[in-house]
Amino acid sequence: MSFLPFAVAAWLFVIGLYGIVSSNNLVRTIISLTVVQSSTYLVLLGVGYVSGGKGAIFADITQVSKAVDPVVQVLVLTDIVIEATVTGLLLALAVQAHKRFGSLDPHDLRALRD
């Protein structure tokens, strides 16, 4: 059981890659990329978890309470921001690709094939 969160992360990573490889729509490719990225959240949070530990918010628990590692949680926050920016940029490119080629299928991006 103690391995389960990491197994889920590995599965998310690979299934997201499958989504990218098998995609026939750029929007689907981009969403698959966010699935790949979300596996990193699970690894980070899993590494920082202390069994029985509370969230690292000491507003209503005493300072000596057992708490999880806040450092990896901050990294996840950074990760989410990066994911949002990357997704935004890629979607903007997809909009322009659709304007140029009239299709979101990666196979129809003629400039890439020539």
């Binding site: 990491f6 978890y49 202390v50 029985g52 806040p70």
Partner: peptide, 17 residues
């Protein structure tokens, strides 16, 4: 990796404290 929940880090513990 260490088992899920068996935390061995140092930074987290220090900053929590």
């Amino acid at each position: 990796l260490p088992d899920f929940g068996a935390y061995h880090g140092v930074y987290g513990r220090i900053i929590d404290g």
